[in-house]
């Protein structure tokens, strides 16, 4: 990894608590600690995979980084510039540099707007060119993501899930951003369509030096597309490493459990079954100490009381575990 350059995206000690309000006076009675001190950086042309199970806060991270949700604490830097405290108006020009692709190809496109206008919307908002220029640009984008420009006048419902995801990607590309948050972009797609969209995302990255924050629960997809991977559990990053070493030898017991749980499409592999017991606890009242200790097969008494910090164990590799 090139450590000397300024990362394109740098997130430090990010926190997002959602207050739980109750009663007539809407008093805050507690917090959902969705994101609890997350730090990472992404270089130009790099993909950071963010994995974890539902409720671990990975989608919230994606939204907070783009400031679609306001962070409770921490800082977000894009190309070295701190955007955490920027006002809405000041943030607007920066929106051209960062975009998002969502999971659900159905609800991410307004059903009442023609797809050509959906893709052209960012250009219109940022006053790029005149009407003719914009139409040309949209046609180019359509071609690039594998749609026919003559489909521009159709409505979203006339497309299949995979095609809609291509429309979403075209919309995200319209302003030529450097950074895209991809929030489970292939999870809702059929297997044979997933490969098409993953290939498209990777081709685009090579062409345009794109950086991705690739959020997914699918470890195989994350391994395929990412350069580095961060594993989240209940609002915290528990392991952060380059892809190869993480998948070769997971260090955190949770990463290990996740990998062991993924069913492999190869019946000749007879694996020893390492199963973690129990459910993911609620982020409203997470377990003390290390959040994973109630499910961890190696847990020791100190894991219950002392929260492990994310520390370097090897160059470019961090783990939050007392035992590793």
């Amino acid at each position: 990894m090139t450590m000397e350059q300024t990362p394109l995206v740098e997130v430090t000690a990010l926190r997002k608590f959602f207050p739980i309000k109750k009663g007539l006076l809407r008093r805050t009675i507690g917090n959902v600690r969705a994101v609890d001190g997350v730090s990472f950086s992404i270089n130009a042309g790099e993909t950071l995979g963010l994995v974890g199970e539902s409720g671990c806060g990975k989608s919230t991270v994606g939204r907070v980084v783009l400031r679609l949700i306001e962070p409770s604490a921490g800082s977000i830097k894009i190309k070295g510039a701190d955007i955490t405290g920027l006002k809405r108006q000041d943030l607007r020009p920066l929106r051209r540099q960062m975009q998002i692709v969502f999971q659900d190809p159905f609800s991410s496109l307004n059903p009442r707007i023609r797809v050509g206008d959906i893709v052209g919307e960012p250009l219109k908002v940022h006053n790029v060119g005149d009407k003719k220029d914009r139409a040309d640009r949209v046609a180019q984008l359509f071609q690039r993501v594998g749609l026919r420009p003559d489909q521009m006048n159709n409505y979203p419902h006339q497309f299949s899930g995979g095609q809609r995801q291509r429309v979403s990607i075209a919309r995200a590309l319209a302003l030529d951003p450097g950074f895209i948050v991809a929030d489970e972009p292939v999870s809702a797609l059929d297997v044979s369509i997933q490969a098409q969209v993953i290939n498209l995302l990777m081709d685009l990255q090579r062409e345009r030096q794109l950086s991705y924050l690739f959020i997914s629960h699918n470890l195989a997809v994350v391994e395929h597309i990412s350069h580095r991977v961060a594993v989240m559990y209940l609002g915290r990053i528990v392991e952060y490493a380059d892809k190869t070493s993480l998948f070769a030898k997971p260090l955190h017991p949770y990463t290990e459990a996740l990998l062991a749980a993924v069913p492999l499409p190869d019946p000749s592999l007879k694996r020893t079954k390492h199963r973690v017991e129990g459910d993911v606890p609620s982020p409203i009242n997470p377990p003390s100490g290390c959040h994973f200790h109630p499910r961890c097969p190696y847990a020791e008494p100190r894991c219950k009381v002392e929260a492990p910090v994310l520390r370097d164990v090897a160059p470019g590799r961090q783990v939050a575990c007392h035992l590793r």
Binding site: A195, N199, A220
Partner: peptide, 26 residues
């Protein structure tokens, strides 16, 4: 067309390897 976790097929997976696609749709 399905990506696999590394342990299934030897570890050195380069991120540039393209997945095989089935073109078109159902």
């Amino acid at each position: 067309s399905i990506p696999r976790v590394g342990s299934a097929r030897g570890l050195d997976v380069s991120p540039d390897e393209r997945l095989q696609e089935i073109s078109g749709m159902v």
